[in-house]
Nucleic acid binder design. Sequence first.
DNA 1: ATTGTGGCCTGCCCGC
DNA 2: TGCGGGCAGGCCACAA
Length: 261
Amino acid sequence: MPELPEVESYRALAERALRRPIVQVDAPDAWFLKDGLDAPTVEAALTGRYFVAARRTGKLLLLHTAGGGPVLGLRFGMTGRLVVDGRAGVDRLLYSSDRDVAAWDRFAVSFADGGRLLVRDPRRLGGVLLDPDQSGLGPDALTVTPAGLRSALAGSTAPLKARLMDQSRLAGVGNLLADETLWRAGLDPRRPAGSLSPAELRRLHRHLRATVTQLVARGGSHTGDLRPARTAGGACPKDGAPLTRGTVGGRTTWWCPTHQR
DNA sequence: ATTGTGGCCTGCCCGC
DNA sequence: TGCGGGCAGGCCACAA
């Protein structure tokens, strides 16, 4: 599902949509427009303008318009895809459908040259925002510093995994990325977030940055080394122990009871 | 304030 | 072969 790695792929794809005059905006699904946004407003905000930059914070894609104009924010939930000129941002999306169904096109921007940028989301869990408020987002997981990670976790009794996925503390980590990172770092997802020693914090930071970087390069949060074993009867790829399945932070969680402490 | 829970969305897969 | 139930998780509202 779209976590940081997928959205980073979408961001790179969205570079193709820059400096192309916008002639039409289609927002057929009112549910998909968030924070009180409506179709006439977003149409008026974008038509006649063009994008100049494609940025990303966590799982939020930001398309800036020229001259300091409005910023289009796109969220993808767990089943949303970005499509530009018929080209999809990722080949395959876990838990979503790979089919092309026009009814799943929830939002589209058409350019003067005939091309289009659109969000295709079967489950409608994503959304469109205008000038999104980013004050509620923590530092991006791809670039977070050791101190940033420490302050995201410090003093908390919540499960470590829940804090890693708390977008207001750290932006970009979803369920699969959290399991993969904690598995690599050898940390029990149920540990109180504030209980990590300085050495464990450094280890987690190193593995977080490395994991995110690697999964971005591989093309998705589903390309982790733990992922194939995240299933009934799965064994730890490191030591062969049967993986444990449970609910942590309200999400299905798989971990190795042997080496994750 | 922090933490936990349940609901929303709907395609897909499994078992009958 | 059709059908119903459960499942997936990002995000948000709400409760304790």
